[in-house]
Every structure is written in structure tokens, then in C-alpha cells.
């Protein structure tokens, strides 16, 4: 059976510098060295999780299922 994941943050991708802006809370946090790596991780996670990457514009990306 499918487990409904809609409206949930499935993963978080932060820049190393913005690490303190997120506190642990259920979703795994991936730490990227630079923006390029962050973009790449976000794209890979987005396509594998079938989720959408949202940019909080403070160095934090969240992946959400809609």
C-alpha cells in the first residue's frame, strides 16, 4: 500500500555555512559544500523522491511532496 507523504518535508539540503539554520526534526539533512553541490543534491533527491525542491533563500532547500 502507498504511504501518503503529501505535505511533508522529505529531506533538507543545507549549505555548510547555513548548517545552524535548521534543527533536526524528522527529515534527513544533507550538507553541501557549495551552491553547485547543493543544487546537484537537490536535483537528485527531487527526482528520486518525486518531490519538489523549494528554496528558502537562506542557504536551505527543502524537498516536499505535493
Amino acid at each position: 500500500m502507498d504511504i501518503e507523504q503529501k505535505g511533508k518535508i522529505l529531506a533538507i539540503v543545507v549549505l555548510a555555512g547555513a548548517r545552524n539554520k535548521v534543527k533536526p526534526g524528522g527529515a534527513p539533512i544533507f550538507i553541501a559544500e557549495n551552491e553547485e553541490e547543493q543544487e546537484k543534491i537537490a536535483l537528485n533527491l527531487s527526482r528520486t523522491l518525486k518531490a519538489m525542491a523549494h528554496d528558502l533563500e537562506n542557504g536551505v532547500y527543502i524537498l516536499m511532496k505535493h
Binding site: 543544487e39 537537490a42 536535483l43 527531487s46 519538489m52 525542491a53 523549494h54 528554496d55 532547500y61 527543502i62
Partner: peptide, 8 residues
């Protein structure tokens, strides 16, 4: 909407 990926 909020679009995170720059390529997108």
C-alpha cells in the same frame, strides 16, 4: 510557486 532548482 517556489521553484528551488536554478536549472528549472
Amino acid at each position: 510557486m517556489n521553484v528551488g532548482l536554478k536549472e528549472a
